[in-house]
């Protein structure tokens, strides 16, 4: 999956707000998502399309209703690649430092 699309989709406060709202309550319709948004329905639709293209939301039909679900898998992939990896490195450095210092004590 294109990670550029994920970063681009996340680089907008409205789209992050939409994700926060789905995180608070998953599986909402367009009407529900438009509530309390200070913009046109058309603008919200555009933002949702970008989020969907980045695979950050998944759309499912339930009867005649189109429901939007947050999909955290691409965010997990970002965390794994850009955060956890470095965290592990830092922990390894700390443990090496501890070993070295403890050796010097002796």
């Amino acid at each position: 999956m294109n990670m550029d699309a994920v970063f681009k989709a996340l680089a907008d406060p409205t789209r992050r707000q939409l994700l926060d709202r789905l995180h608070a309550r998953n599986g909402q319709t367009l009407n529900e998502l438009c509530e309390k948004m200070d913009m046109s329905r058309q603008a919200v639709t555009k933002h949702l399309a970008l989020l969907e293209a980045a695979n950050l939301i998944v759309v499912q039909w339930q009867g005649r209703e189109k429901l939007h679900y947050i999909n955290p898998v691409p965010i997990h992939e970002i965390a794994e690649r850009w955060i956890c990896k470095f965290e592990r490195g830092r922990l390894a450095v700390l443990s090496d430092l501890k070993k070295k210092l403890e050796r010097e004590d002796r």
């Binding site: 997990h76 992939e77 794994e80 965290e87 592990r88 922990l91």
Partner: peptide, 25 residues
């Protein structure tokens, strides 16, 4: 739990290597 499992499956099928267990992050 699922995002970590699915990301690890993707990594295994695409690169031959799964992801480490997500404990540090």
């Amino acid at each position: 739990g699922w995002p970590a499992v699915l990301s690890s499956l993707k990594s295994l099928l695409e690169t031959g290597k799964p992801l480490p267990r997500p404990t540090t992050c």
